[in-house]
Design a protein around this nucleic acid. Sequence first.
DNA 1: ATAATAATAGTCAACATTAGTCAAAAAGTT
DNA 2: AACTTTTTGACTAATGTTGACTATTATTAT
Lengths: 155, 155
Amino acid sequence: MQGQNISDIIEEYLKRILADSHQIEIKRSEIAQLFNCVPSQINYVINTRFTIQNGYVVRSKRGGGGYIRIAKVNLISDADVMDDLMDVIDDNISFTQAFRIIQSLFEDSVLTQKEANLILAAIDQRTLAFEDKRVENAVRARILISILNRLKYDD
Amino acid sequence: MQGQNISDIIEEYLKRILADSHQIEIKRSEIAQLFNCVPSQINYVINTRFTIQNGYVVRSKRGGGGYIRIAKVNLISDADVMDDLMDVIDDNISFTQAFRIIQSLFEDSVLTQKEANLILAAIDQRTLAFEDKRVENAVRARILISILNRLKYDD
DNA sequence: ATAATAATAGTCAACATTAGTCAAAAAGTT
DNA sequence: AACTTTTTGACTAATGTTGACTATTATTAT
């Protein structure tokens, strides 16, 4: 059991709701109050845990009756989402971000647990081990794109 | 063993917990305080006594609510075959040689077709795409060794 | 209509809270 | 003495928390 910090707890809370609902709409200030934190903490949670890499699409509106809507999307079946993913990777990607992508591919059953683990082993920071972080992120991007292409055209 | 130095004592302490728990999650500073040593001593203990060779996998997270998680894993029956292969790879390997290794692992049913293909996609020449062939072969070696290490245990 | 005001959410940078690295010093072994 | 292992701490890196300030949208007043 992890999750000693508020961000993890909020993440868990939102994902539990998303487990049945596929999509939720929240009021930022209400959630903040519920977990006794500042409103911008909700943005932090969303930006780090509900990105497209994680398989989520977020839309929001300000002003009276404003909201934040979080929707779970399927990575393979949606071509647009796949394109977004490619855009995110571009020509460099951190391990953390790559991890999120692999995890969502596993959650969407595109990858088995073992396949996901092998890919993660390949793109781990210690594995690539370049002095220059930019080189590391560039190599990781090439590997990931190569693998995504394999997944895309193989079946 | 001979519980002479602090490292041995900490090792013993952690392993005693791991005897019933299969996995533990610690706070580095708490353990350090418990044994009256500096936090980085915990890293030393982990790096020298909880390696994959010993059958342990370690994961950690920094920041608020950070932790170090140590899990005991089951080494598969041909874990030592992986060790032999890693000896052969050493610190550099061509794609052709790597291909043979992956192929033999497939033939021995260690890898499925899809797993083998994903690995090959990752270590392909066009994927790695380095000017310098020596760099390419070194990176390929690191990736392959990391993957072989991962194959040593299940789950 | 238009302007002012209220009610939202977003951004960003400072600060806080962890863990990791590395190399020098100390201790132990041969 | 030479070599290996352990101990220590200064510095670094990653992640999380907070709040002041900004941007956008809806509502109300003129």
